[in-house]
């Protein structure tokens, strides 16, 4: 069955990206520590009053995730570019969406692992007292990350192959993430302040709509941008 074979390809790309990442050692640790560092800097800039910190917690958390996570995306293409492996990759009889899906999934896993470190640190540093529900909070984190990683994976496929890639990726990506930032920060804020889901409900719907629209759009557009 062709779909089963395509899924095998997606899994192969996920395996390759994650294995390479694990072995190169530099990547994950540096990104996670950068996230923590950014949180600390926000703490210095906004604190030390506990109330001010609590109000800023969700926003600081998401900015730390965005600024540190964005480093993951160019790296994902870097490993193809370093060994000139992009050309052989594109010459397999594989539909392009499998490449996008594989990289997207690998990047998502990477970002979620970074969040596993950054979120607890944020809760501690920003004096968060209680969380209305861990499951909804986790859900918001996941939805926001999907939008972030989907667009990040897409734009990095271009930025990683242009000049000034370190600045071009954030320049292209961050304006697109305004709805994600607003929705995730607001929904997280509501949950971190102990408010139940209904406040966060509308934002969650926006996040879901955003994710669907842009992940689909990225899949279609990827075909056009990866070939050329």
């Amino acid at each position: 069955m062709p779909l089963a074979q395509d899924l095998r390809r997606v899994r192969a790309i996920i395996w390759k990206d994650l294995t390479t990442e694990r072995r190169s050692k530099a990547g994950f640790n540096a990104v996670a520590f950068l996230g923590v560092l950014i949180l600390l800097l926000f703490g210095f800039a906004l604190g030390p009053d506990a109330e001010a910190l609590r109000n800023a917690a969700a926003g600081a958390l998401w900015l730390a995730i965005l600024f540190s996570g964005v480093l993951a995306f160019n790296r994902s293409y870097q490993l193809e570019l370093d060994g000139a492996a992009l050309e052989p990759l594109l010459l397999y009889p594989a539909p392009r969406w499998t490449i996008f899906a594989g990289k997207f999934a690998a990047n998502l896993l990477f970002v979620l692992l970074v969040e596993a470190i950054v979120v607890p640190v944020a809760i501690i540093l920003f004096q968060v007292k209680s969380v209305a529900g861990w499951l909804p909070a986790g859900g918001v984190l996941l939805l926001g990350s999907i939008g972030f990683v989907g667009l990040g994976t897409f734009y990095a496929s271009m930025a990683s192959r242009s000049r000034a890639r370190e600045v071009l990726l954030p320049l292209l990506l961050f304006p697109m993430l305004v709805p994600v930032l607003l929705a995730s920060a607001e929904a997280s804020s509501a949950l971190l302040a102990g408010n139940p889901m209904q406040d966060a409900g509308a934002w969650v719907k926006l996040l879901i709509a955003f994710d669907v629209i842009f992940v689909v759009a990225s899949f279609f557009a990827f075909d056009h941008v990866i070939e050329v």
Partner: peptide, 17 residues
């Protein structure tokens, strides 16, 4: 691709803000 996605985002940004 970038122009299209950017334009697609305009109404979403407006609503969010």
């Amino acid at each position: 691709a970038v122009g299209l996605l950017g334009a697609l985002n305009v109404p979403i940004v407006y609503m969010s803000v």
